[in-house]
Amino acid sequence: MSANNGEQRGGIIVAVVPGQPTTVIEHAAALADDLDVHLVCANVDVNRYLVSSYVDGSVVALPYDPDLPEVEKATFDAELAANIRAVLEPKGVRYSLEQLAGDPAWALTRLADQIDARYIVVGTREAGFRGSLREFFNGSVAVHLAHRQHRPVIVVPLAPLTKGEKLPWE
């Protein structure tokens, strides 16, 4: 499902990734429904960098790794799109899919500026050691967003700790 830029204006962006629990999309959808605005589901390919983007929302990106295929129009992951559709269509939420490339915080900020988004919704890190390690070295997308643009960032907890558990940096 896609929408033109005018339909997306003033909507909510939700960052989506393959394998992400549906709770992030569900919370973003509830907010979009409450506010009666469009929901933009944005996936960022961190293995490519943006070369150009077009009015129709298509993106051309080059891989950082020279062994990956050359210039191609970035396409939204079909399985991720099907999962999003399964969650959102029964709810009747207006949504579109956007494929982005590069640093997630910069890509989401650029899209938010483009459509004058009200909010950006992201999930927390993956549970476990690998997720904590990746977040430690790369930084939290939510933290980067909070420092790079003026919109509110809503963070949906994916693996909240129970009382007495140590925080990842402890």
Rank of each mutant, 00 (worst) to 15 (best):
V51W: 09
R110N: 09
A127F: 08
W106Y: 11
G102S: 12
L80K: 01
A28K: 01
A30H: 13
A32L: 07
E89W: 01
L88R: 02
T162E: 07
D113L: 02
W169D: 10
I84T: 12
K166V: 14
P90L: 02
A86H: 11
C41F: 12
A112H: 04
R48P: 00
R118C: 12
R148Y: 12
L88Q: 00
G92R: 14
T162R: 13
K166L: 11
N47Q: 08
V51N: 13
S132K: 10
A86E: 04
G123R: 02
D34A: 13
I84V: 13
D116V: 06
D34C: 09
D67Q: 14
D56S: 03
K163P: 05
R110V: 07
N83C: 08
D116Y: 07
Y64S: 10
T162V: 10
A30Q: 07
F136C: 09
I12Q: 05
I120W: 06
G131K: 03
Y49H: 15
N83Q: 13
V40T: 13
A42W: 10
G164T: 07
A82P: 07
D34E: 13
Q114I: 05
E165P: 09
I84W: 12
A30N: 15
V60T: 04
W169E: 09
I154Y: 04
V51L: 07
D33L: 14
K73G: 09
V60Q: 00
P160E: 08
A78V: 15
R110L: 02
Y64T: 00
L158W: 03
N4S: 07
V24F: 09
A74M: 12
P90G: 10
